[in-house]
Design a protein around this nucleic acid. Sequence first.
DNA 1: TTAAACACCGACCATTATGGTCGGTATTAC
DNA 2: GTAATACCGACCATAATGGTCGGTGTTTAA
Lengths: 130, 130
Amino acid sequence: MKISKKSQYGLRSLVYLAQRDKEFSSLRMVSEAENIPFDYLEKIFSKLEKGGLLKSKKGSQGGYTLSKSAAKIKVGQVLRILEGEINLVDCIGPKKCSRRSNCLTITAWDKIQKSLQKTIDSITLKSLID
Amino acid sequence: MKISKKSQYGLRSLVYLAQRDKEFSSLRMVSEAENIPFDYLEKIFSKLEKGGLLKSKKGSQGGYTLSKSAAKIKVGQVLRILEGEINLVDCIGPKKCSRRSNCLTITAWDKIQKSLQKTIDSITLKSLID
DNA sequence: TTAAACACCGACCATTATGGTCGGTATTAC
DNA sequence: GTAATACCGACCATAATGGTCGGTGTTTAA
């Protein structure tokens, strides 16, 4: 029931980039500005890029920038990319649970899960920098 | 971003007890009925008792039962007892964060946290067994 | 009064996830 | 050609999780 440092670092970085609009920032810059371990940030950005939120430019003067407007990026996407598909509980989602049919707790987890999804998808990067 | 097995086991057990109203069920019974490792369940019940949700009776024919009506027990309480105070992110809550003043992500975590709290406190044990 | 059924407790342990580091390669601008 | 960068896989220490074990004290019922 925690949000990992990975996600915290990730969101912080994205906010940083959102504030710099479409200009490219190097890992080094973000890492120093946001005080995030360089090597770790690299892994995070790699995920975010594969997830479609970042665009990169290689070589000297290269770096990263948002792949789309901050208004179109939702915290939910960030979390899903970094944490993986969010299933608060195994019985929800792909993994079936044998007791599922007569398990009364699923109702609860399901409500919580749905509410959480709704919340995280209601927050855009843009709303954070305003 | 997961709900621990501890909490899942905990809630399942509480629902089980809620269905048996005020009668005492032994660890053995709950453990077998709900298919939860006996020794582990013991630790969970111990926490729930200290947390004020369970009442116990020692000795033969002893066991556990809810300490108050199922309508008064909320999923939020269960989670807080088993997971500890829920702070999605360290910067919220007691631990101060040096960059807090100029960190734009706190807004997001705070919203998510508040929404989560609200949701889990809106679900009672009773609502689950109906 | 004894034995069984139970709650209660602290210590231990294996596995996994997390957060982080390292060494090296490929690419680009100057 | 050199410096600055992205990119990648392997490695690793620490902590959290889920679970087990051995033993103690209490109560009931035979």
